[in-house]
């Protein structure tokens, strides 16, 4: 069997290339655009980390329950209020940059949810210039901005929790949210 990445010959029972570390069993040749599948295969991780593994705190398979999410937010210093909307599923309302932050759970199976959606809206009494929204989405990373049916601006961001999620990554994404929201508020003088 030869390695799809470097061509080195390997024994049939080897899973990874002895030369470059590429996966042998799962590797497939690169496809051209014309041959790209309608439902493309999921890329597999290169098997050999370039540095020793770091100690990470894994989020459980399937994601977090709302109780686990509540405890984690509180441990990070956030206030948590549980609010039940029309859907019947509770979501969390907390504060970020002095503004209310709604945290909705997504991709739920039973009590565990594999993703989150963060959302903050601003009441501007029709004073927000909606023509500015595209420039925000063009220029800024991470969050998508839009205006609602009364032309008030919103900012939203999704966070993946499972599979492969860690509390360190969740903390990083919440930090990104806070910084991006701060820029949004400052750029459009929102409060």
């Amino acid at each position: 069997m030869s390695c799809p990445r470097c061509g080195t010959e390997s024994l049939p029972d080897q899973s990874f290339c002895k030369n470059c570390g590429a996966a042998l069993a799962t590797a497939e040749p690169a496809q051209s655009a014309a041959a790209a599948p309608a439902a493309p295969a999921l890329p597999q991780p290169p098997p050999v980390p370039q540095t020793p593994p770091v100690s990470l705190h894994a989020i459980p398979d399937g994601g977090l329950t709302i109780e686990e999410l509540t405890r984690w937010l509180e441990s990070e210093g956030y206030s948590v209020n549980l609010v039940t909307g029309e859907s019947g599923r509770p979501h969390i309302v907390t504060k970020s940059q002095g503004s209310p932050l709604n945290i909705f759970q997504g991709d739920c199976k039973g009590e565990r949810c594999a993703s989150l959606e963060l959302a903050t809206g601003f009441s501007t009494s029709g004073k927000f210039d909606i023509s500015q929204i595209n420039a925000w989405n063009y220029d800024n990373r991470w969050c998508r901005a839009y205006y609602d049916d009364v032309n008030d601006p919103w900012l939203r961001m999704n966070i993946d929790l499972s599979p492969g999620g860690t509390y360190e990554a969740l903390s990083e994404r919440l930090g990104i949210w806070n910084r991006t929201l701060g820029r949004f508020i400052a750029q459009y003088s929102l409060k």
Partner: peptide, 15 residues
């Protein structure tokens, strides 16, 4: 986001 806290499993899922 890849780091800190990223995993290949999460990268694959997001891709």
């Amino acid at each position: 986001s890849l780091w800190p806290g990223g995993t290949y499993e999460s990268l694959n899922d997001q891709f």
